[in-house]
Design a protein around this nucleic acid. Sequence first.
RNA 1: GGCGGCAUGGCCAAGUGGUAAGGCAAAGGACUGCAAAUCCUUCAUUCAUCGGUUCAAAUCCGAUUGCCGCCUCCA
Length: 480
Amino acid sequence: MALRVYNTLTGSKEEFVPINPGKVGMYVCGVTVYDHCHIGHARANVVFDMIYRYLQAKGLDVTYVRNYTDIDDKIINRANRDGVPYNEISERFIHEFDKDMARLMLQLPTFQPKATEHIPEIIALVERLIEKGYAYASGSDVFFRVDRFEGYLKLSKRNLEDMQAGARIEVDEKKEHPMDFALWKGAKPGEPYWESPWGQGRPGWHIECSAMSSKFLGDTFDIHGGGKDLIFPHHENEIAQSEAASGKPFVKYWLHNGFVNINSEKMSKSLGNFFTIKEVLERYDAEVLRFFLLSAHYRSPIDFSDQNLKESELGLERIYNALAGIDERLAAGTDHAPTEESAELDEKCRSIATRFSEAMDDDFNTAMALGHVFDLVRSINRALPVSPLELLSRVKQEIASIAATLGVCDSVPAEYLQRMKDRKTSEMEIPVEEIEALIAERAEARKAKNFKRSDEIRDLLLEKNIVLLDSAQGTTWKVK
RNA sequence: GGCGGCAUGGCCAAGUGGUAAGGCAAAGGACUGCAAAUCCUUCAUUCAUCGGUUCAAAUCCGAUUGCCGCCUCCA
């Protein structure tokens, strides 16, 4: 089945046909590096990482470009506030971004260009726009002439008149039209600058993405992605700049991810209701966060809450429990002839790859894909004790292949479960030695059939969120 | 004011014309000395409301209500 993607430009799902067969050029707007990333950034980046992985899994040769916008008003403001050079801020937060993304297990893009390393390309692009009459210098600034570009607002599907009616646009004497936007900004005293034909200045927001995308992917490429909030003005302006300059279509498929909400409201810096990735990872495993972000379709809003994260944690644990069970049987090495239950598992195992790719082919429906995984998990649990080892190895392989695409369930099961236990253990108020002493005492009591004392100890520990697990091999424990 | 999106069981969440996936929670049962995990069973005759199209609609059309987003920096 062919991959279908929802294209913001056309407002509908379309079959994905690469411009050059077998190859995909994909550009995703990265971050403006002036602060720590929040989980909204985490979602956007995890989503496009998943898309990148899936396209590769389909055998496509993907060139993935994700930029750093490392010069911008907000960076300058932050630098002024902190009394440090602007590049100290940008370099610091590039480093922090990289660390966050690594913890979220993102694959590295093919290229991660920086705006400040492409100033000559940016200046050349602005000059070209001026030559073609799409831009004009005004003082030391250069603006894009929006009413000159015919397709302006075709992505966000608005028109200039309506935009102005209720808009809060500050009147700028230097602009011909209130909606014109800056391609180049003259430097005020004390601001960082580069030499240009219009004097000392810096690039405006938007132009760096046009310059860098064409450098790495050409004038026309397949996929451009980002958060929904970038549709206007950022992506609209990119289209205007790039298509005006090249005279060619800019992007074939525009993909936009939905927001992370807090109590159904958009999480954002300006509202102040945001959690940084680092804050969340103090309380939840990175894989849990990733699983949570992929548990809804990428275009839907997703509500961030403790309860939802806890659910993801439980769901992921359910999958890992099943995988750990497979590992244990494989390690034990005791084979079993096929049974009715194993036949059902065999059937599920044979169809899982198809069901997974059908879900993913439908505009990257990870929620449905995970549903299929859970379905397989139940079959695993049902058939685990009575399945041939050969079947269990195949199941393991199928899941590993899915896991590699989603970037979840990719850990060694026993290690994941241990990691979760360690994380919870570190939050306990009762020392491990005390738990073990109580377990030893309980073992004695149980041996003497003193179940009253045995249950007292179980209840005592349960109050502290410790659950005892009895088995033939003895008693272990876990944190509730 | 303009434009756009969403509304599915207690919660989360798939499902864009063919008769409601999956997860969490809950209840009963099996297993266990008791538990945990796991398995089995139950859990939306119904998809915000009202009309319409159709043999057939959660899915298409219209209206209403509610929530959200963009129009200003924002993933």
